[in-house]
Every structure is written in C-alpha cells, then in structure tokens.
Amino acid sequence: MSKQIGIPRIVTSRSAVTATLSVLFVACWSSGFIGAKLGAGSAEVPTLLMWRFLPLAAVLVPIVWLSARRRKTMPTPRALGRQVVIGILSQSGYLLSVYWAVDLGVNTGTTALIDGIQPLAAAALLGPVLGVAVPRMQWIGLAIGLAGVAMVTAADAGAGTSAPWWAYAIPFLGMLSLVASTFVQQRAPASTPPLQALAIHCSTSAIVFTTLAIVSGAAVPPSVGTFWIALLWLIVLSTFGGYGLYWLLLRRIGITSVNTLMFLIAPVTAVWGALMFGESFTPFTALGLAVGIVAVVVVTRVDNRPKKQDESTDSCPVRAPITSR
C-alpha cells in the first residue's frame, strides 16, 4: 500500500469516464478535511476517530483475513509489526494532527495545503537518508512550497480565526509523521498487498483511538445527528470513496498521473471550506495556493526532463504509504 512521492506528471487521459472519476477522486479526498470540520463541533476528536475506525476494522479484518488464508498470503510477524508502525505514523498520528488542528480552528484549506507539501518534503528530506540523489531544483521547489504555506497560514491567522498561534504547528507534525512513515515503508524488504495493509492500518487506528477515547472518558458517542452524519461522510466519502477511486484510477492512468491530482486537494478544500463553513478565503490565500502550485511545477519540470546516461536512475522514486483522510 504505497504511492510514489516523486512529483508526478500532468494527466494526459482524454477519456470522459477517467475525467469524471478524477473529479470524484479529488472531491472524495478533499472531503476528509471537510468531514473533520463537520464532526468537530459535535464530539471530541478521539470519539469521532474511534467510531470512524471501529466499523472499518470490523468490516475489513474478516474479509482480508479470509482472503489471506485462502490465498496463503498471511503476513509474517515482522511484516505485520512493520505495517502496525506504518499505520500508527501514516494514519493514527497523521489524522489525529489533522482533526486536532481543525478542531482548534485552523482552516481546512490551510491544513490541506500543509499536508499537500508532504510529497515535496519526503522527496527532498528522505533522499539523502535513503541514498537517493536529490536535484537542487527539488530543494528550491520545497522552499517555494513552504513559502506558499506561510502565505496561506498568515492569511488564515490574519482573518481572525479562533485558532491559537501554536495550532498551526500541529498539521506540520502530521506531515512529519507521514514523512517518517515513508522512511519505514522504504526500508521494507517486500510490499504488502494494499487491502491487507489498509486492514492492518485501520485496526491499529481503531485500537489507538479507542484507547484514547476511553482514557479521556469520551468513548460514548453523542446522540446528535451531526455526529452520525459526519461519521457516515468520513467512512463513505473519505475512506471508501477516496481510497477506492485512488486504486481504480491507478489501474486506468498510472501512479504519476493519479498523484498529480493530489495537488488539487488544497485549493478544492479551501474553496469548499469557504463555501460550506464560511472560512476565510482572501486574495492572499489564493496567492499562497498559487505559489504552492508553482512549487509543484518547478519540481515537475526537473522530474520530467530526460535523464542523461551518466545520471543516477535513483533520482526520483520515493514511495510512501497512502492513508485515508
């Protein structure tokens, strides 16, 4: 269950079906940030995440376990342990930071943009650790991306949101958690089947968030309807919709084209949050989002240029676990 972190190329498919699926994918992936905002006012963060992942684990584990037994693809204890660690970093830690930041009042678009620079950060920061050549323009692209984040964050904070200043550091912790999971994934000697890894990650998150909810005395779900609407939203749209469409598009147009769509998440989320929740969306916000897209273009131009024969073939691919929003 991994995705390439190297900056992808522009989607070239002209199929109307593929275009429709691509639009749905961006919408479903963005819906995870909107769902976090939707549920923020109705329950504590551990409560919402506990009841999001308990049903997922209950559905996925029996299906994946029976399939693995039939196909004799049961994970070894070592592979299982590695996937548990990846799940804690890429799903539990990441989502906890996203939901916590949104709950504190950070705009959904700002949170999505900080998450969106993770491919740039992973490619630049993990390259030296993993022995992968990192072009100078990739570092420049990361710097431009960070400048875009700073602009959007400044616009968000300047608009008088309820979030304290330190809340804007929380999404960065989640982004770094994703980068750490990338490192663990890269060190794996063999890949784990996507559905199997998803089941392990969801089960791990169910245990983590149930423990947090019980310890904090927030395990009992509220009776308000908005909580269950947010929960249904997150399970159907964010997990099954976003994740399912990711793998469907992966087979149709390939990983580089699919991952290009990921860079549309931040602007779509920012507009969606402004329309649905009245979050601030100023010209400065739009400029910051545009700067973030420029960062992607800068790195894409480097990534897509023809390789010379004496250049290392290891200069691009860094892969990370994909996680449900």
Rank of each mutant, 00 (worst) to 15 (best):
E44T: 12
V291K: 00
I140G: 10
P62H: 06
A79N: 13
F172M: 07
S177Y: 01
C316I: 13
F183E: 13
T111C: 02
T192E: 13
V132P: 02
T300Q: 15
V294M: 10
V59C: 09
V236F: 08
A121K: 03
S191K: 12
A218S: 14
V296A: 05
E44I: 04
V102A: 08
R252A: 09
V23K: 03
V220T: 15
I170P: 00
V297N: 05
L104E: 01
L275W: 11
G105L: 02
G217L: 06
I5Y: 09
A213M: 11
I265N: 10
V302E: 15
Q91C: 06
P8N: 05
D115K: 07
P306H: 10
T111S: 07
A163Q: 02
V129L: 15
T12C: 07
Y246R: 13
S203L: 13
S30V: 03
F209Y: 12
V59G: 03
T47R: 02
V149C: 14
A101W: 03
G39L: 02
L96W: 12
W166S: 03
A124I: 07
I63C: 12
F227Y: 13
C202W: 14
F53N: 11
I140T: 13
N107F: 04
T226E: 15
T111K: 00
V271M: 07
C316D: 12
P221R: 04
A27I: 14
F240Y: 14
A206H: 08
P119W: 11
S31W: 01
V102M: 01
I200K: 01
L54E: 06
G292T: 04
G39A: 07
R136N: 11
L56T: 09
L113M: 11
V23L: 15
T226W: 09
T211F: 11
K307H: 14
L96Y: 09
M137E: 12
T111D: 06
V134G: 10
E44S: 15
I114S: 05
V215C: 04
V102Q: 01
R187N: 10
A188F: 06
V224L: 09
L264R: 01
A40D: 09
A143D: 08
L60V: 07
L49R: 03
G116W: 05
A219Q: 11
Y99D: 03
F281I: 05
V298H: 07
V297H: 08
G241W: 09
I34A: 04
I5H: 05
I5K: 04
Q83E: 12
A163F: 01
A79G: 10
D303G: 14
T300N: 15
S312Q: 12
A197T: 08
M151Y: 02
Q138V: 13
Q4K: 12
I114C: 03
L178K: 08
V132A: 14
A169E: 02
S257H: 14
I253W: 12
E311Y: 08
V224W: 09
G158V: 08
